[in-house]
Nucleic acid binder design. Sequence first.
RNA 1: UGGGACGUCGGCAAGCGGUAAGCCACCGGGUUUUGAUCCCGGCAUUCGCAGGUUCGAAUCCUGCCGUCCCAGCCA
Length: 572
Amino acid sequence: MDKQNAGNAPIGSGKDFIRTIIDADNASGAYGGRVHTRFPPEPNGYLHIGHAKSICLNFGLAEQYNGKCNLRFDDTNPGKEDVEYVDSIKEDVHWLGFEWEDREFYASDYFEPLYDWAVQLIKQGQAYVDSLSPDEIREYRGTPTTPGTNSPYRDRSVEENLALFEQMRAGERQEGECVLRAKIDMAHPNINMRDPTMYRIRKLAHHRTGDRWCIYPTYDWAHGQSDSIEGITHSICTLEFENHRPLYEWFLEQLGVYRPKQIEFARLNLSYTVMSKRKLLELVTEQHVEGWDDPRMPTICGLRRRGYTPEAIRQFAAGIGVAKVNSTVDIAYLEYCLREDLNQRAERRMAVLYPLKVVIENYPEGEIEWFEADNNPEDPEAGTRPVPFSRELYIEWEDFMEDPPKKFFRLAPGREIRLKHAYYITCTEVIKDANGTVTELRVTYDPESRGGGTPDGRKVKGTSHWVSASHAVDGEVRLFDHLFTTERPGDQPEGADWRDYLNAESRTVLTGCKLEPALAEAQPEERFQFLRQGYFVADKKDHSAAHPVFNRAVGLRDTWAKIQKNQGGSGS
RNA sequence: UGGGACGUCGGCAAGCGGUAAGCCACCGGGUUUUGAUCCCGGCAUUCGCAGGUUCGAAUCCUGCCGUCCCAGCCA
């Protein structure tokens, strides 16, 4: 059977190197045609868009090849991990649209077999208890260019090692007093092979095993065997574990157990943001943002609150591909994926962010007309909604200029524009306050233009969105921009602090925005296109009918802004 | 100066000895009751550099240069 381009193969590209490897394995029957992957997060932080790449890869592979993908928590370090994180991780993976059914595993499920295997290695003379201090171990390890030296405890007898290791488990040894190490080669050019630590003593309760253990396996000792136990065929991880692969294979070989194939790919970097767990944690703890789900965060929950859809994120993951080159993807591509998705699906609404009052002098006072506005021109099935029109309205500040430049074709004194779905209006008078600030526009409308066109077929250059003043619902709108002012905040010259590049204007909160009445019915997390402005979502936490709050997920493409920028013009 | 990996357009990324896909960005033009969407067109005589093999090389060989990872009882 030909599965080469089955299902969700990345759009517009050949298959990536991982799929090439899997196809070859399937062709040779290396794993009996089986494909079984896993996503193995450590529950010590929230998932971010980089994890989404890995999740989409691992679960996507399983889907594509009719295999399975496990969710496995790598919880070997009780000092850093917490249930808060396992819960958030499960929620995020689900939200992204993936199912692991009954395959929710924990490295801690394997503590017992791992212990037995350690005993086996001791018996085989391939592991020993070392009583060197942490500092001494580091000194004995050597450097990348100089070989290490053997620990004086390296040749303890099997019996002595067994006894000591039992004492470690029994809690009879103190933290830092000793560790269990693999006996490999202290002169190995790969530092990971210089007698790596397998167990350390941590007298800490574990979020799953409680106080049953006071020795915990290191990731290096736990990871390969966890994959082996679960029958993983392709163990996909990031580039930094490439150096560890020989170690994992050594362990599995000495143990004589099933060996999965580890494949490494480049982790995702995104422009104008940071991705390291440490930096994301600092953004939260130092309150540069308002939490893990702040809409400016590249976390899954942040993107979700920002208004991103799981589909857009999956499309993004498929679009960027998988390779071994370290790379930084332009955040504009992520934004593009969201627009692509929402353009098809989001219903349109009108909202005026920076209101400018307009009075139609020849429109009857007290009269109200209801126009039927299409909810989505891309999708006739989306239907229409009634929008009220009256003598006093609000339009966008930006849609009026008293002294417009050449290419401006919106409203200006004496100029005519169309109000979307309604009438043509012509500006007749500009009213200002004592400071000379425009406070109101007086206009006339053409009754013949009802619905947006006239019998004489004359053209208007611009179309504006608007909201009837007496029907408008006041709302709060939060605008977001890139979190950092530089493309690679995590990659700065010596001495520079990545925090120095935080964008002070990454968030703008607007109040008193004028929303069309239909928006009062929006449910939290419901997404819309605010006509001519962008895609917005009713805030997951703060939005209510009484106090509407919308987040701008991404703006629409803005050719006019580009023209202004290229002309060096100031616009309004 | 040790080991492991990687270098194809501004950013991703195909290509696997037969003469440089695609996407984003960018630049033009058309349609348009969103300056949106949509549509059309442009955008690597060249694949880190230098040699070599070959009728033919981004693809094979050699050397060089550059970038990333490794000295946690973190993952």
